[in-house]
Amino acid sequence: MAYEVNGKSFDSDEEGYLVDLASWNEELANLIAKDEEIEMTEEHWEVVNFLRDYYNEYQIAPAVRVLIKAVKKKLGADKGSNKYMYELFPYGPAKQACKIAGLPKPTGCV
């Protein structure tokens, strides 16, 4: 599988996760989001950018608990909840937000 953006091709695995983390860009993220039936808003970008920064620093995706805590710090208590995350990413922040952020599919519990 692959994504096509402006005539350039980006390989993905059979579930749509980007193969090369470094090849990610915002246009590609928009395309992946579209496939996931998600319209990217500022709130979505905030989560996606947080995930990328976190992955760059620690080499793994954060636990949902860590993600929620970070969002709470940044955007306030009303947004730092499971419910808020699922409103943004109905099929789960781990699966959908990581895919849009160009990160590998989260494995196991971490």
Binding site: V64, G92, A94, P106
Partner: peptide, 8 residues
């Protein structure tokens, strides 16, 4: 990263 389950 687990999505759905919250353990008490």
């Amino acid at each position: 990263m687990s999505d759905e389950i919250e353990f008490n």
